[in-house]
Design a protein around this nucleic acid. Structure first.
Lengths: 310, 310
DNA sequence: ATAAATTATAAATAATTGTTAATTAGAAAT
DNA sequence: ATTTCTAATTAACAATTATTTATAATTTAT
């Protein structure tokens, strides 16, 4: 290896001698023997072909070359210290960035709370949220563009074996009605009641819509028989539409917690229909997992888990 | 020794991998084998407790921690390179400072030419001239505040054994007369003529004056019999006084070369008086001698030497 | 699936670095 | 001046660390 003319240890010794004014004191400071100090300085002088110290006097004094070298030495060692600190901060989660991917629904309704909690616990780690389709989120995790993904929908099958999937909660797909709707008086509905309603839905392209349709179909509902009043392009728009009495809708409970609490929307149970979807954290096991990412999974996710364990 | 968490070699390897995108290419670049690269990076990761590279893909990609570390790495290695260059420049006399001490006379009349020559030859070495008494110059050389001294007078005896003294020329103490002085017609004077003249001298405190008096006394001149017309505080002032016809003076020839050449001052020889003083370079043999100092002694001094050798 | 390439691992060797012990050199003190 | 004490150098040895060679495990590309 085309060698560097000095080592960090040599610079450290140089600095110590300059500070202490003596080889011996420098040796004590560094917890090595004094000959080791002599040898290293001799090597340094040989390698750089300069004289660094005027020895022999009461003190070891720097020559001009030594002074010049010392200046660089200080700067270099400072940088090294800084580098160490930066790495330590990263290790202790006092720095760094966590990049999270999320789908529309989780990104809008879940992530703000999750990120809030995370930042509360690790205020020095910056968090970046990228909201994309479930599919794209999956690929981003796969190729390492993001640290982890929080999704609701189903991943493309080719990604399912590649990524590590951690279900942590179920999000119920709830039927919501305008407060003043005639069926709002009822606590319990049955499947058949649904066919009497007009629905406001997401437009038929969106992943969430597909997930919803899939889930409803799987629960034995004939979605063709459901009457679609209008299609909108955001859950927020749908919520407003429902609140304005324009129709019923199936919405993820995570997205209507506020409205349920304030009673502006009604959510009756349906005895013979349980429409749930799994909320999952996805990570890439074949890639480096940052400390921040691990901390998210370990410290934040459990607080949103609807399962007992952990 | 309380160990540093990394070595410069490791940083160099890190940088090479980041640049080349591959452990193998980095190994080739550094003329070491690939396992050596792997091992060093593993050590680095272990010591810092971070993962630096995402291996396994087509390329070795930096993790976040790796990127942060790389930034410091670059800065550190740049500083190292700079330090090397500074030291090299110092070695090849493309940098550094030469500090010269001189007494009044040499400092005023000799050093400008000497320094001019030196700077011509080594334009990148800066030169600092400190003009003090011979005595103080000697002490400065002794304690290393200046690299070398160029003096005319006699050193204090306690310094004579401590310092290395290199006589390189003799400076004649010449009698000078106004051009229109009655004695200016004569080519040769005798000692006795001096007692008929009025003299302009340096004030009686100055070292040079003392040296002059000493020299004249030693040449058998009764300095009490000399008539002092006035005392001035600089050779330049004395020169002007002489040129204005105010009197005669003893001046070092080095200080009146221009005036002799232009004929504004007359310098008759005195057959039975040879008043010479040694010009000497003094250095401190027990101290580090800078390259610049050696170069001065070797390359510049001989051009001012009145001796044959060298 | 196989071939080519890259990285990791293991064992042996080489090199470096630190230590101890002995020596030399300087400074302070009698 | 001689002695004494301290600090620095030198040399031999031990221990650690890095490098190499050889091989295995992965991964990508054909």
């Amino acid at each position: 290896m085309p060698e560097l003319p000095f080592t960090l240890d040599q610079l450290r010794i140089l600095k110590a001698i300059a500070e202490q004014g003596s080889f011996k004191k420098a040796a004590n400071l560094l917890f090595i023997t004094q000959p080791a100090v002599s040898l290293q300085i001799q090597n340094l002088e040989k390698q750089l072909n300069i004289t660094i110290f005027d020895r022999g006097g009461r003190k070891a004094l720097l020559t001009e070359a030594g002074q010049i070298l010392l200046e660089y030495c200080q700067r270099i060692l400072n940088q090294c210290d800084e580098a160490c600190k930066a790495v330590e901060d990263l290790n202790s989660l006092k720095g760094g960035t966590l990049i999270i991917g999320a789908s529309q629904t989780t990104g809008t309704y879940l992530m703000p709370r999750m990120i809030g909690l995370f930042r509360q616990k690790y205020p020095d780690v910056s968090v970046q949220l990228q909201v994309h389709s479930t599919r794209r989120t999956g690929w981003s995790v796969a190729n390492g563009q993001i640290d982890l993904g929080i999704i609701g929908g189903q991943l493309p099958p080719e990604l399912e074996n590649l990524l590590h999937i951690t279900p942590y909660a179920t999000d119920e797909l709830a039927l919501v009605l305008p407060s003043k709707h005639r069926l709002s008086k009822e606590k319990e509905l049955v499947k058949e009641d649904l066919y009497t309603l007009s629905f406001v839905t997401l437009d038929s392209q969106s992943t969430t819509r597909k997930v919803v349709d899939e889930l409803l179909k799987n629960s034995g509902l004939d979605i063709q028989r459901l009457k679609i009043e209008m299609e909108l392009n955001s859950l927020e728009a749908i919520k407003n539409a429902v609140q304005s009495g324009l129709g019923a809708a199936f919405l993820p409970v995570v997205s209507i917690e506020r409205e349920l609490a304030s009673g502006t929307i009604h959510k009756p149970s349906i005895t013979d229909l349980g429409v749930k979807r799994e909320l999952k954290l996805i990570t890439n096991p074949s890639r480096y997992t940052s400390k921040a990412s691990k901390a998210f999974k370990k410290d934040i996710l459990p607080q949103f888990s609807s399962f007992k364990n952990k």
